[in-house]
């Protein structure tokens, strides 16, 4: 419910008090200790049972005058139908106080009824003396919610039904799930590409091809295996790689430096195989080639 604030200001300015009264009332003080006092109240009509009534008191005192916090009413029931929900004292600047009050009304009228929120007295202390400033009572009207002769149902008077709980919200969990799945998909795609499982979105993985070729290699087909490995190096480098140009290759692909000795052996072995008159072949060479290719493959996909 939107509550428009109608401001009713009860202002008491020291200047308004007549000098004669003052002189008679407080012989010692030159003027009143409370310079300005405003009570801001909301609209005085249109309330119903259980409604809250906000109020605000603004006080400006002379320097050296202290508001006694003990003189403020305490939160809790004030009488049978009126509850002070909240009271808050804020020091708003030098010698200025703001008191926010919130009342709650529990009264069930039969017709529109005028009620009064009782006033109270604010006490201020000034050099050991106590001065009172009274907050006036405030009247407002309260309306009933039901007709005078209320409608009946089978059990007696009509009651509003129980409130069922709202269903638990799954929005947060669903958002988290979607985010986690999206992250997993992105990471999975990245790794799949790195491993060469996405041929249409390929990161060049020539050693994977070579590894496949080498895996089902008969000892007699060693030439084909060497050629596959050579073409993998060529494809990685982008130009033919020979034994004497190995340093250039390693400069372009420093990650292969960790198996440099094996690479040297490979190019040397390949030279001897293709160009020597009497190649000294051993069955262990095939396994060594496969191992080399496995290392290259690991380097290629970044796992080594």
């Amino acid at each position: 419910m939107k509550r428009r604030r109608y401001l009713v200001k009860v202002s008491r300015l020291a200047a308004l008090a007549s000098a004669a009264t003052l002189a008679a009332a407080c012989a010692g003080g030159p003027s009143r200790p409370v310079e300005a006092f405003n009570l801001e109240t909301p609209r005085p009509f249109g309330y119903q049972i259980g409604d809250t009534v906000p109020m605000r008191i603004l006080v400006q005192t002379r320097p050296g005058v202290q508001l006694q916090a003990a003189s403020l009413p305490k939160p809790g029931p004030l009488n049978r139908w009126l509850n002070l929900r909240r009271i808050e004292l804020v020091e708003a600047g030098a010698d200025a106080y703001r008191i926010d009050l919130e009342y709650q009304v529990f009264y069930a009228p039969l017709e529109v009824k005028a009620l009064t929120i009782p006033g109270f007295a604010l006490r201020f202390s000034q050099y050991g003396q106590t001065v009172e400033e009274s907050v006036p009572p405030w009247q407002f009207t309260l309306a009933p919610l039901r007709e005078l002769i209320a409608r009946q149902d089978v059990d007696g008077e009509y009651l509003r039904p129980d409130q069922p709980p709202a269903l638990l919200s799954t929005a947060g969990v669903r958002t988290n799930l979607a985010l986690a799945l999206m992250a997993a998909a992105v990471l999975g795609l990245k790794l799949a590409r790195q491993y060469g499982y996405l041929p249409w979105f390929a990161r060049r993985s020539p050693f994977k091809t070579a590894e496949k070729r080498l895996r089902r290699l008969a000892p007699a087909e060693l030439a084909a295996g060497l050629a596959a490995l050579h073409s993998a190096f060529n494809a990685t480098y982008g130009a033919p790689v020979f034994g004497h140009r190995l340093p250039d290759f390693l400069r372009a692909h420093p990650e292969f430096g960790q198996i440099q000795s094996e690479l040297v052996w490979f190019f040397d072995y390949s030279n001897r195989f293709f160009f020597a008159v009497q190649p000294d072949l051993a069955s262990a060479d095939c396994e060594r080639l496969q191992k080399l290719c496995g290392w290259c493959r690991a380097i290629e996909r970044g796992s080594r």
Partner: peptide
């Protein structure tokens, strides 16, 4: 709903 039923109870 609480306002309404409180009024019922009070009456």
């Amino acid at each position: 709903d609480a306002k309404y039923n409180l009024e019922v109870a009070m009456r």
